[in-house]
């Protein structure tokens, strides 16, 4: 079976030789090619090439469309991104500096015509050509209620969200929602077949259930309505969200849940059960200092919790560049070993 077929089998609960094994090695690509982070992320073809090399070497199941925090901000007018050779790029210039800027803030009519889209398109073109029929190609979509954090800074967004004028907040969310809908359509058309919908505010780690239900959920519904949710994975930026899984099923109809390492995976698995896919995620920040044996033991623990009764995927989180390669290999070897199905 191809990795795409193995993923489908896990979602649907049909027989497969093993669980799907997802690994995010996007940031590691610059080191793989021996080039600087800025050169790497400014060239979509190189981002694809590096991932394909690592896919061949490690044999995991997925690749990623070009993404970094700030890529969406660039499509919306951000002029400055801070690149680092030991970590991911970050937004260095906020598009919205004051509340007055919200009125002037505009969504491009067609983001695929924006110069910042070119690298994304180049990356997806190569990935689609090489592995589009066999492998999941993941793309990252920031939810409309989280997007303002990268446009104006998290603290300014919290201030507007919790204490600011509702009409101004909603005006910004409407614009962000227009962008999210375009982004999903464009990424899917370019070849992404797994959309990681990143919605930290869709977790009670960020806001209480009342705000989540009254404000965040309706915007998430609007984000996802146009193209449906069959390719969408619910992800809260590594924040735990076990207590909203049922709401996500009922109100968003999303079946795939990317569980935070800070959450109780066994509880998540019980809640999701056979209704959808539980993604068990390793705490890869600890992998920086773990031994290979400790890494293997944690992979076994996660898979032991999740594998029973199927509907389970093993995945990674942010995969910091400081993780030793021996631990990446140990993690993936263990995932294949323990993730085998009878």
């Amino acid at each position: 079976m191809t990795p795409l077929q193995i993923l489908d089998a896990a979602i649907n609960g049909t027989p497969a030789p093993r669980i799907p094994i997802f690994c995010n090695l996007l940031d590691q690509g610059a080191r793989e090619l021996g080039i600087a982070s800025k050169e790497y992320f400014n060239n979509g073809t190189k981002v694809a090439e590096a991932q394909l090399r690592m896919l061949n070497r490690y044999g995991h199941d997925n690749v990623w469309s070009l993404h970094y925090v700030g890529k969406e901000a660039e499509l919306l007018g951000c002029q400055s991104v801070l690149f680092a050779d030991d970590g991911p790029p970050n937004v260095a210039d906020f598009v919205i500096k004051t509340w007055d800027d919200i009125a002037k803030f505009e969504i491009p009519a067609d983001i695929t015509q924006h110069p910042a889209w070119e690298t994304v398109a180049d990356c997806l073109t190569l990935l689609r050509r090489e592995v589009g029929n066999t492998h999941p190609i993941c793309a990252y979509v920031t939810a409309s209620t989280t997007l303002p954090a990268i446009l104006m800074g998290m603290d300014k967004w919290m201030e507007l969200l919790l204490m600011g004028p509702a009409d101004l907040r909603d005006a910004l969310l409407r614009k962000c929602n227009q962008f999210v809908k375009q982004n999903i359509t464009a990424l899917s058309a370019a070849g992404a077949n797994v959309l990681i919908y990143s919605s930290p505010f869709g977790s009670t780690y960020f806001v209480n259930k009342k705000i989540l239900q009254s404000l965040i959920m309706p915007w998430m519904q609007q984000d996802l309505q146009p193209g449906g949710v069959h390719d969408v994975v619910y992800y809260c930026g590594m924040a735990p969200f076990n207590d909203v899984i049922d709401d996500v099923f009922e109100q968003l109809q999303i079946k795939c849940h990317y569980i935070s390492p800070l959450a109780d995976l066994a509880v998540a698995k019980r809640i999701i059960h056979r209704r959808g896919l539980t993604c068990g995620v390793i705490d890869d920040i600890k992998m920086i200092n773990w031994s290979a044996d400790e890494t293997r033991a944690e992979v076994k623990r996660i898979i032991d919790i999740g594998k029973t009764e199927g509907h389970f995927l093993f995945g990674t989180g942010v995969m910091p560049m400081a993780i030793p390669e021996t631990n990446i290999k140990a993690m993936l070897d263990a995932a294949f070993e323990y993730g085998a199905l009878a």
Partner: peptide, 13 residues
């Protein structure tokens, strides 16, 4: 452990 970021932010502000 279930306290949320919005509560932390509001406490401080």
């Amino acid at each position: 452990p279930d306290s949320n970021l919005a509560q932390h932010f509001m406490t401080a502000q």
